[in-house]
Amino acid sequence: MNTTSREIFNEAELLESCVKQDRRAQKTLYEFYAPRMLTLCIRYIGDRERARDILHDGFITVFEKIGSYNGSGSFEGWMRRIFVNTALMALRKGDILKYSEELVTAEREITGEQSVLENINSRELLRLISSMPAGFRAVFNMYAIEGYSHQEIAKQMKISEGSSRSQLSRARAWLQERLTGK
């Protein structure tokens, strides 16, 4: 068996090899996770070119910090957090997250029909999410897709929990409007 056709037997071995800076293991890891992580980056950043930069920076951080992954929780979850943090840092640099105006109105329930999501495919939904105003796009992504709590979002984005709730509500409303108007 040639080295180039070497198989990585499981995730633990793959990660162990990545810790040793084995380039082929790193490439395997990249090939497996890059499409998912690029989608995440596009959702947060909006712009595809910038999202690719975030993908690059995120993977560099992953390979540098991979030794600190202690096996508690899924590796993908650990990795997602790195990419979310990298994306938020980039947004913060561009002052995009400054927009955190609280809504006076209370959180609203979505009243849309289920069919609004059945008429759209994943690619179009991604395009829609990535075109959301940046301020509440990040909150929506973190809460609705990544599963962060409002407390975690508030801490991460340095806003109040109330702001997090109100921005989520606005994001849902914004999205529903686009979906029904489609």
């Binding site: 890059a34 499409p35 998912r36 690029l38 989608t39 596009i42 959702r43 690719r52 993908l55 999501l117 495919n121 994943s122 690619r123 939904l125 991604l126 999410i129 609705a144 897709i145 599963g147 999205l175």
Partner: peptide
């Protein structure tokens, strides 16, 4: 939305 996004992958 989560399900739709998780099922979609953008190739680098």
């Amino acid at each position: 939305i989560r399900e739709m996004m998780e099922s979609y992958q953008e190739l680098p």
